[in-house]
């Protein structure tokens, strides 16, 4: 790799990639010695390599800050929120599939109101009916009790009748 007209240096041949790989330390071992020999005799490439090594060292000096301790917790919280939202979305999608025309609120709202009224109506109606039935049972029991007492009175009068006749005689 001589710097001659026939066999120009990597820079002249626009092969800076070779020198860049050399500076980055990613050049194949068998080519390193070749580049080093060339850089030793070519001032232009030597200058390029020195400049690139300066950049490399400067970038290596750029340290980074430590990652926040709560980074992962915050990410998992975001994922949990997304999963929850996705759950609701799936639920809505399921309803949309059930209602082919989609969930039209102009229809759904009155239907919901009617359903609510029915539920409330049944809840209110049932105790009333139960109370009525209980009152009827109590009333019937009282009537039976009255009839039994009347029968007992009649029986007692029937037993008293022969005694009255004996007294008259």
């Amino acid at each position: 790799m001589k710097n001659t007209k026939d066999n120009a240096c990597p820079m002249q041949k626009n092969e800076g990639e070779l020198l860049l790989s050399y500076c980055a330390g990613s050049l194949a071992a068998e080519r390193v010695a070749e580049v080093e020999r060339h850089v030793g005799v070519c001032p232009e490439c030597r200058s390029w390599v020195e400049g690139q090594q300066t950049v490399w060292q400067a970038l290596e000096a750029w340290e980074v800050e430590p990652v926040s301790a709560d980074f992962e917790a915050a990410l998992f919280a975001r994922i949990a929120r997304e999963e929850k939202a996705a759950g609701w979305q799936r639920w809505r999608e399921a309803w949309r599939r059930l209602l082919p025309g989609g969930l039209d609120w102009r229809v759904a709202a009155p239907a919901g109101a009617i359903a609510l009224l029915l539920v409330v109506g049944l809840a209110v109606e049932n105790p009333f009916r139960r109370e009525q039935a209980e009152a009827m049972v109590k009333l019937e029991a009282r009537e039976i009790e009255k009839a039994e007492r009347a029968l007992e009175d009649l029986e007692m009068l029937r037993q008293l009748e022969p005694l009255e006749e004996e007294t008259r005689l």
Partner: peptide, 9 residues
């Protein structure tokens, strides 16, 4: 970068 950081050599 080579042009701007050359003085750091």
């Amino acid at each position: 970068l080579r042009a701007k950081l050359a003085h750091m050599a």
